[in-house]
Amino acid sequence: MDLEAQFERTVAAEQRVEPRDWMPDGYRRTLVRQIAQHAHSEIIGMQPEGNWISRAPSLRRKAILLAKVQDEAGHGLYLYAATETLGADRADLTEKLISGKQKYSSIFNYPTLSYADVGVIGWLVDGAAICNQVPLCRTSYGPYARAMIRICKEESFHQRQGYELLLTMMGGTDAQRAMVQESVNRWWWPSLMMFGPPDAESANTEQSMAWRIKRNTNDELRQKFVDMTVPQAEKLGVTLPDPALKWNEERGHHDFGQPDWDEFWQVVGGNGPTNAQRIAHRRKAHEDGEWVRAAAAAHAAKRRVQEDVA
């Protein structure tokens, strides 16, 4: 049987493709692109929340936030490792990130302007990420699927802490409740954009579905997210800033308005509120660390020589 047919059969039978299996170049490229983009998102995502570590309003919240941002670095590491099983190289992918050749999730191009944003990012942004990522636990490429199982467990805990922060704040002062509502107003539409453009305009969906890299369409996931979030917002006591949002008995789903897709494409294209800042921050950390990485490599090389001589 030829290799391509065997690959198609493996995928169609919902079995996993493993690193040493034959795979089409397009499948490999798509995976590297998607996993790298996900890894970059974790790493860039450290910045908006990391912005509040030094100002966290209680020691418990400081510990939670620091642990969360640390987890994001860890997720980036697992995902870069998954790309390495496909023949990619972390240094090369980092270069592509800081030169703007590869993307990361546009949600991180919005600024964090209050501590409520830490909670809302947990609740809405991590919630949307989980909706996107849970199906990836069954994605066809084995190392990616296994990394996603671990990541989803941790993300679900992040989401829970975000929601718990918001519940606590809503039980606090009027100023805190206003802070939560203001934050929800700012993050709601960008969170809906996290599922990507409407299916009719999504370039990557069809082939990725056929290869079982992607399991649901953008619009399906967006609907699921809205349906799950509405009762949570009610329980929290906040309103979602969409006048078109209402339950549709016939469909068994909520109807809702469309995000501003012009804004989405602007942000994707590099013109969001913090695109330049996020990349500059990452680039500076990378470049400032160059001498450290060089020193570690030089030291390791000297050690190897010593061991060889011994």
Binding site: I53, V69, Q70, A73, G76, L77, V292
Partner: peptide, 17 residues
Amino acid sequence: AEWCSRAPELEEDVALA
């Protein structure tokens, strides 16, 4: 914690945090 997102390697972001 000021190193978080600024370390020379991701491993060091994790370790210092």
